[in-house]
């Protein structure tokens, strides 16, 4: 029922931990496309987490007969939206300033 939000919690913790690790380990050197290694890693992980949310949603929408299942689907969407919004600063803010 709450799998969407559990996945968001995992995504949020992972991104925050990776950000802290990247900045403290000095992964600020330029990687590809003019982006730092820290930002590239965060982008890759964020996109994969969004992909995982989409897979979870596909699995959740298979069954929507009961109210509990419908609530589960809604929470799946909320989890996806929350991962997109809370991870969005990766795109627009510099990593370690």
């Amino acid at each position: 029922m709450v799998s969407g939000l559990v996945l968001w919690a995992v995504a949020f913790s992972t991104l925050y931990a990776l950000h802290g690790l990247g900045c403290s380990s000095g992964w600020t050197g330029s990687g590809t496309f003019g982006l730092s290694w820290a930002k590239l890693l965060l982008l890759a992980v964020w996109i994969s987490l969004i992909g995982t949310h989409c897979i979870l949603l596909r699995w959740l929408v298979r069954r929507k007969d009961t109210q509990m299942e419908r609530i589960g689907i809604a929470i799946g969407w909320i989890g996806l939206g929350a991962t997109v919004v809370t991870g969005a600063p990766i795109v627009v803010v510099s990593s370690c300033v």
């Binding site: 949020f12 925050y16 950000h19 965060l42 809370t86 600063p89 803010v93 370690c96 300033v97």
Partner: peptide, 15 residues
């Protein structure tokens, strides 16, 4: 705290 981390928490706070 670095700005990007602030962004994560600011977004969650608005959400």
């Amino acid at each position: 705290i670095p700005h990007m981390a602030l962004g994560f928490f600011s977004a969650a706070s608005v959400l």
